[in-house]
Structure formats: structure tokens, C-alpha cells
Simulated assay, not measured.
Amino acid sequence: MPLPKFRKILLKLSGEALMGDQGFGIEPRMIQYVADEIRSITDLGIQVAVVVGGGNIFRGIAASSFNMDRTSADHMGMLATVINSLALQDALEKKGVQTRVQSAISMHELAEPYILRRAIRHLEKGRVVIFAAGTGNPYFTTDTAAVLRAQEIHAEILLKATKVNGLYTSDPQLDKKAEFIKNISYMKVLEKQLKVMDMTAISLAMDNKLPLIIFDMNQAGSMKNIVCGEEVGSRIS
């Protein structure tokens, strides 16, 4: 068995990653697949934290464009991430992976409150910790929440799961001339305004020198290959 190169990672999953080929919601086969991929790295003894988006259920920034108050829309988006987090927790625990959901919005009947020391203790005990409800504040995306939580738990790297195999100069599904980018600096991402993560998240990662890897979640084994040191996807550092 290959030896892992990292001791602690944070995985950022978009809500869309859980809906598979559906246009909405959670696709059971897909969430089982994601749980299997996460288990493949917890089996290596790596501490794993996860931040899940909510775009498969509700996207606050999109709703605000239809004259909904942005704060209300973002709070609804945070609740969508809690739904996804509970679904992922259930899928992981059915595969024997102890999992805890910590929410930035208090909802004691459903999830633990976000307490940093408790989260670190869970990770040390080999549990997967899913951080739900973003930062708990409107106007901040789950990308920013992922970088923030990664910094707080002292994750060595942030893995951003997408539907493409890395970073491109433009959207490869729309532009056939889009060029693949293997390695890039934070500043170049900001200058070119590449839409891989929001600019606040990239800036926060840059300020704290948190390396990011963008990879295709649909390629089975990608996460395991990354944590074992293989060059997969695109690296921002």
C-alpha cells in the first residue's frame, strides 16, 4: 500500500457533485460513490474534513438575482448545505466511517455546533468531520468557508472536487481552445479571474500559503492518488 504524503486534508465538494446526472437534489448512487472515495483515504490513516456546498438544492447568489434579499437567500443556501452534510454523513457511516457534522448555525437536534477544539479532537480519533452551513455568515461562499476551516484545523492541503480534470484558461465545455493549466500561482488566478473558486477564497489561501489542488471527482481513485503524492489535476500554490 502506498504511503500518504499528507496527514490532514480538507475536501471541498460542490453540491452539484452530489446530484450526478440529475438536474437537482441528491443522486443516491453518486453520494455512495463519494463516500467510497472518502473512505479510501481515511483507510490510509489520513485525517479528513469536508465542506459541502448546497448548489444542488438552493444557491443563494442566484436567488438574490431574482430580487430576493441576499441575506435571506444566503441563509437558505446554508440550510441546503446542512441537508447535503447529513446525507453524506449517513452514507459514510453506512460504510463504517465514523462521521460528525458540525454546523456554523446552531441546530442542536441535527448537528454539533462548530467548535474548533472538538473538531480537531474528532479528527485525531479518526472521524470524518463535515463542516456545514458555510461560515454562518451571508455574503461568504462555501469556497471561502473551506479555506477558512482548512486554516483553522491546520490542514496541509485543500482538495477542490469539480466536474473537470483541473484548471483551464476558460471553460473547456464551452471553449474547445481552452488550455489545461498544471501549476499556477494564486496571483495569476486572481489576475486572470479564473472561476475555479471565488476571489475571497483564493486571497485567503494566498495569505496563508494553503496549497489547493483542483481535480475531477468523477475519476475514481483521484483523491487517493493525490494524497499518495501523484500529480493529479491542477495545483495552485
Rank of each mutant, 00 (worst) to 15 (best):
E191R: 04
L44R: 00
T169W: 11
L79W: 10
M217Q: 08
Q173T: 13
F58D: 04
M206I: 09
G166W: 03
K209L: 11
R127N: 15
G229A: 06
I41V: 15
H108T: 13
T169F: 08
L79Y: 09
R235N: 03
I57T: 07
V48L: 01
I120D: 03
I9A: 05
I9N: 05
N225W: 09
L86N: 06
M107Y: 12
L13T: 02
G221F: 11
K5L: 12
D143I: 10
E152S: 06
K5F: 12
R118A: 07
Q219H: 14
L212F: 04
H75Y: 15
R59P: 00
L158H: 03
I202D: 04
G60A: 03
L116N: 12
V196N: 02
I213T: 02
L204N: 00
K182R: 15
P211M: 07
K224D: 04
L210G: 01
R59M: 04
Q173D: 13
T42V: 14
G136P: 09
A35D: 07
I61S: 15
S237Q: 14
T144R: 06
H154C: 12
H75E: 11
K177F: 09
K176L: 12
F215V: 05
G221E: 09
A145Y: 00
T200H: 10
G45R: 01
N218M: 14
T81I: 04
P172C: 08
H154D: 15
R70Q: 13
I83P: 03
I157E: 09
F215H: 04
G20T: 01
I213E: 00
I157C: 04
Q47E: 15
A201V: 04
E231N: 13
E179P: 05
R39F: 09
R118F: 09
Y139G: 09
Q89L: 05
N165V: 06
L79V: 13
E156C: 11
E112P: 02
N84D: 12
V97K: 01
H108M: 11
D171A: 06
D43M: 08
E16C: 10
H154V: 11
A80H: 02
G15N: 11
V48H: 02
S185E: 12
I226N: 01
M76Q: 07
K94T: 11
E37W: 02
G136W: 07
A73Q: 00
A145I: 01
Q89R: 08
F58P: 03
H154R: 14
S237Y: 14
E230A: 12
N225G: 13
Q151F: 12
Q47G: 08
P2W: 10
L116I: 13
H75C: 10
G134Y: 01
I83Y: 07
Q22Y: 14
E27A: 10
N208D: 10
I213G: 00
Y186V: 04
A80K: 04
R127Y: 14
R117E: 14
L123M: 09
I157T: 06
A155N: 05
Y186T: 05
A49W: 01
L11G: 00
L3Q: 14
V34H: 02
I41Y: 03
G54Y: 06
M197C: 07
Q219A: 13
R29F: 11
S237H: 14
A201L: 05
M19T: 13
A201W: 02
D216W: 01
E112H: 06
